[in-house]
Design a protein around this nucleic acid. Structure first.
Lengths: 127, 127
DNA sequence: TTTTTATTACGAAAATTGTCGTATATATTT
DNA sequence: AAATATATACGACAATTTTCGTAATAAAAA
């Protein structure tokens, strides 16, 4: 199986997000969460989680009569990978170009902007 | 045809990037560029560009015996759309969270960091 | 006007992802 | 033990994307 640990598909990312919030969890619980925002069959969720396990994205341990699944990659690793891919594929490798685009967007709220400024200051302090 | 103008696939984005650099251009020229970094048949490039035209992503005009293609969506619109999707799908809708991840990454060079700081200052001035 | 060359159109297959129905297995209840 | 319920395994189909071979068209050369 190819190593695609860090590049989840859309459906896989949805599952990872639920797990990162609280893990380990059973397929049943994951599916219950997904059902709140999405119409999808139980076996679909199960199948995707099995695929993810085969890819090494998830792992699982038996617990009573069912399995508890947990992620095998840190959230930040995946996030970093997704950002890097976006920077490379759509911003010519320039991270600053991405940030510029992000900040120029009206949808980035005042609150978000202030938060970002705070982060920059934080970084400068530690330099 | 569904409106997927702003959400190009990987192969489509590669073509868009070449066009945004200099347009309009013929399939032949686009394919020549792609061939520098990718093994792909001429008719593959052609087909994808035809698909993109059908989706409204590209347009074309006859020029002599061939066609010159040009993009039908601004680069920034597509970039913004891709960022928004990433923010929503992997950062819980928080743009600042994405920036934090980006800045915390060692791969973001000193030069990039300074550039980003400059952008922030620029934004603050205009506030 | 044939022949050659260059460009486009089209169809179809491969790869990937997402979907779920059905079967199997295991436990719980009656 | 038989019936019921719960969880997993598996196969198959649908949708999308990527791939390219081949045919058709049009232009240029011989």
């Amino acid at each position: 199986m190819k190593n695609k640990k860090n590049t989840p598909t859309t459906a896989e990312l949805e599952i990872l997000n639920v797990l990162w919030e609280d893990e380990p969890r059973s397929v049943k619980e994951i599916h219950k969460e997904l059902s709140k925002v999405k119409n999808v069959g139980y076996t679909t969720t199960l199948k995707i989680m099995q695929n993810m396990t085969a890819k090494g994205m998830l792992d699982r341990k038996p617990e009573g009569k069912c399995h508890l699944y947990f992620t095998n990659i840190p959230k930040t690793d995946t996030q970093q990978n997704l950002i890097n891919r976006l920077v490379d594929s759509a911003f010519g490798g320039s991270a600053s170009s991405l940030v510029m685009q992000l900040l120029g967007n009206k949808k980035t709220s005042e609150k978000e902007l202030n938060e970002i400024k705070r982060i920059i200051e934080e970084i400068e302090k530690n330099q």
